[in-house]
Design a protein around this nucleic acid. Structure first.
Lengths: 184, 184
DNA sequence: TATTGTTATACTCTATAACTATA
DNA sequence: TATAGTTATAGAGTATAACAATA
């Protein structure tokens, strides 16, 4: 049984109180789980990202949306939501925050008044460019660990993970978490 | 990992065959950003995970903690927090939820009364085993896309992302908002 | 004084549902 | 009837800060 164990406190497990180093725990089946390594990598990158973007306070998703709106002026929320597999209500809140910061604006579509076309404001364009520069440096801290061919293969493998579910299921909501939620 | 879960942001980027559905947007610099692909892959795996574990309703983080406690009986929260780069308050909440479901229990350490040793309950052991089985099938749906050597290389690359702070600096505290939150 | 656990607080994400205004 | 946006609500994750007990 796995869990009944009886290790007394300090045995082998953790470094005792005051012990300096990291805890070396038995990772069990986690070492073989692709999703586990993926999440750990995601967290590591996120933490560096956060420090990098502290000044701009743009989350990865917010940056993604700014980039999408910047590259596709007039794109509507529903398309962003689908592309990023987000709920439309979640997308709403995200866009609200960006709009509140005056980084983008909504304009009712002239051809379909239900739609609100999205455009970056001048400030949004400036912030986006700043963000791109910061992110480039941030990215380099990780990509520099790989050779050109390694990086290419790495990204191809990541795409192989997320570009497969084409036909079958419709998208689903996400849930995280986390890297951040208890969500995966 | 750390996160308890939530991460996920987009998915579905794919060029879907179904013409009608997906928007074809210019992804701009996103296509070159490692962190973006990592998040997308994370989301894809998370969504499959979510469907797989719907019956047990265990988030990836919750499963991770159960596995760690199962493999390391008596481990304390602070060590789990450090290993997974989570805040100790976040870890607290996570453990609270597992305890509320009677999957694990806290016992005050006999040698350091500040500590609470963690142990799986009998029910926790059973749920953990069920989860392991479900996850094995879930994992296979993704790992089957790679050859043995490819998978090995892939995981090594992921580890290269998150195991960098090993020698020199300690890792860093937390700071994540969620892969969750608008977190990575 | 430092550490572990804890609580309180606030913000965000996520999902669902229902409502609006258009189409 | 269907779609795009919107609002309301609920449950969860995450981070910060402060506190208690113990070392």
């Amino acid at each position: 049984m796995a869990g009944d164990g009886k290790l007394e406190d300090g045995e082998g497990l953790a470094p005792g109180p005051g012990g300096a180093g990291k805890p070396r725990l038995d990772m069990g089946c986690l070492t073989e789980i692709l999703g586990f390594h993926l999440r750990m990598a995601n967290v590591a990158i996120f933490q560096d990202y956060q420090q990098t973007m502290a000044g701009l306070s743009l989350t990865p998703k917010q940056f993604t949306v700014l980039e999408l709106v910047g590259r596709n002026p007039g794109v509507v929320q529903i398309d962003i939501a689908e592309l990023l597999s987000m709920d439309k209500a979640t997308t709403m809140a995200l866009v609200d925050r960006l709009e509140a910061r005056n980084l983008l604006e909504r304009r009712t579509s002239t051809i379909d008044r239900r739609r609100k076309d999205l455009f970056l404001t001048k400030q949004g364009q400036e912030v986006l460019q700043e963000a791109r520069d910061l992110i480039a440096a941030h990215e380099k801290r990780f990509t520099s660990r790989f050779s050109g061919t390694e990086l290419e293969a790495f990204i191809e493998q990541l795409r192989r993970i997320y570009l497969s579910g084409e036909g079958p299921h419709g998208d689903q909501g996400s849930g995280d978490p986390a890297g951040t939620a208890d969500t995966p």
